[in-house]
Amino acid sequence: MTDNGRLQLAEMFEEAREQNRAVLLPYLTAGIPDVGTSIEIFAAMAAAGADGFEVGIPYTDPLMDGPVIMEAGEMAIRSGVTVDVALEVVTAIVTETGKPVLVMTYVNPVLRHGIDTFFAKVRAAGAAGVIIADLPADEATPFMAAAETSGLGFVLFAAPTTDDDRLAGVIDADPAFVYAIAEIGVTGERTDASSNVARLAERIRRLSDVPIVFGVGISTPDHVASAARHGDGIIVGSGIVRRVLEAGSPAGAASDVGAFVGELVTATKRG
C-alpha cells in the first residue's frame, strides 16, 4: 500500500473500475454510540465489504446535515469526542481494517487547530483524505495546499445547482474526487432514488475522468444501484447512523449495520 493518501484513494477507485463496480464508503460519526463500539461497527462494515470510510468529526452547527447526523453529532460532542478523540478512532479503524479513511468535518474546527496542524494530525492518524462540508472551492486553496503537503487527498463538491463555470473551477482545482451531491438538501434518507445523478455525472464527465462519488439522500440498495451506474463511488450516511442510534445494544448495532452494508455492497456491482 502506498504511503500517500491521495494515491491510496486512486488505487481504491481503480480496483473497483476494473471490477465493474462502484466503491461503497459508509459514513459514521466518530465515537457513536461510544468510541469502542464505533470501532467495532467500522470493522463490521469492512467485513461486509465496504471499500473505505468517512469518519465524521462532530461540529455544533453542521449546516449540511439533517436531523439524524445532527443528533449523532450532538451526542458525540456531549460525550467528549474532540478532533483528537476522533483521530484515535481513525487510527484504530485503519489499523484494524486496512481500508482508506476520509475525515469529514466543518471548517471551523479545522481553523481552530490551524490548517497545517490539522492536516498533519489527520495524516499522522493514518487517514487518506479530508472532506469539509462548508468549504466551497472558492475558499479551498490553503486547505488543498496543506492536504498536498501532508500527502492527503482533498475532496470538493458539485451540486445539481452548480453551474458550468463553477464546475470547471472545481475540476481545475484537481480534487482527489468530486463529491457529487445527489439531492438538493441536507443529508438524510429519501424515499425515491435521485433523479439528478445521471445528469450531474454526465456534466462532470464532459470535463474530466476524476472519480465521482455520490452522496446525500442515498439510503437503500436501490438508490445505490442507481447511483453506481453513473459514478465511481457512493457515500451512505444517515441510513447507517440511524441504525446505530436505534440499535438496542452495541453488538446489535455492529450486526445490524454489517448486514445493511452487505446489501449495499451487493448493489454497487454494475450489470
Binding site: L63, V107, P136, A158, T161, T162, D163, I184, G185
Partner: peptide
C-alpha cells in the same frame, strides 16, 4: 467575511 457555505448554496449566493 467570505462565503463558507455548502456548494449547493453557492450558486444562489452568486
Amino acid at each position: 467575511g467570505g462565503a463558507f457555505a455548502p456548494e449547493t448554496l453557492m450558486p444562489a449566493l452568486k
